Computed example of a mutant assay.
Amino acid sequence: MKRLIIFWCLFYGVTTAGFAQIDVTIPDTKAEKGTSVVIPVNVSDLTNQGVISYQFVVTFDENVLDAVGAISEETLTSSWGFPYVNVNVDGQMTVGGYGIQELSGAGVLVKLQFTVVGEPGEKTDLNLLLFVFNAGDPIADVHGGVFTVSSSNRIGVEKEMKKLRSFYLEQNYPNPFNSRTAIKYKLSERRRVVIKIFDLLGQIVRILEDKSKAPGCYLLYWDGKDDNGNSVPSGAYVYQLMADRVKIVKKKMVLLK
């Protein structure tokens, strides 16, 4: 048994000694009820670490924050395009990204978007779970943050809250998909809805919806074809919902043939 323990210690030391460690942190943040807040996920220097993908889960109190999505604009991963986001589980957001170009430098990896729904003074931990770079190398040393709802004397906060929560775009299913995928969205009031599909170069591939819609749940299907009826190649695509030209929500999907 003693020899086995010594062997395990030596083996563990050898197999982990070559793995670099990257600090991943979420800063403490404050914002008022009824506002949208963007919270960065920061990383230490990724230079020469060969990072071409990441994935993690962030958990929070859904009574304080309502998950909207994630963006990569002005981050280390901006060249990778839109991150993959799943917010179908209350109090949880799954985020991932991948690209051909290796990441380098320190800074913001990705930005998380929320709507503040809690009351002034309420707090929630932002916990980072299951964080993985590539297939586990380099190792992520994660540190979550705390979000606090700050006090506000602004007039019309409840009106703004209603506006922010008046529609919701769900993740397509199945994803990845082969021949057809479903896209569901919900409206709590009448809105002019435009849903477009883009490739990763930002070019419009298909316009699925462009009309005024009454409150309710709606289901659309995309068959992997453009507006001219031509089949598009396999790859990642982004679908975007815009309501009354006010707010835009984007999600990523993958077509595999």
Rank of each mutant, 00 (worst) to 15 (best):
R192K: 12
K247A: 14
S44G: 09
N134T: 04
N42C: 14
F167Y: 10
V149F: 08
M93I: 15
V132R: 07
Y185Q: 01
W8R: 10
T124Q: 04
V232H: 03
N228D: 13
D210W: 00
F82M: 12
G34R: 06
T124R: 06
I195N: 00
L65V: 12
L164K: 14
Y168G: 03
D223L: 03
D226V: 03
I100V: 11
Q55V: 01
V149P: 05
G224M: 03
K213W: 00
K30H: 10
R3F: 11
R245F: 05
Q55G: 15
Q171T: 09
V249H: 11
L255K: 15
T35Y: 09
V85H: 07
V41F: 10
Y185G: 02
P138S: 10
I248V: 15
V238H: 02
A67E: 08
L46D: 08
G69I: 11
F60V: 08
T75I: 12
E102S: 13
Y218A: 00
A70W: 10
L255Y: 08
V58Q: 14
L220P: 00
D90E: 09
F19P: 00
A17E: 07
Q240T: 09
Q113N: 14
T15S: 15
R165I: 05
K2F: 10
L187Q: 03
F114G: 07
R154C: 06
G50L: 03
W222S: 00
V14W: 14
G99H: 05
G105C: 10
A182C: 04
S151M: 06
K213A: 02
L219M: 05
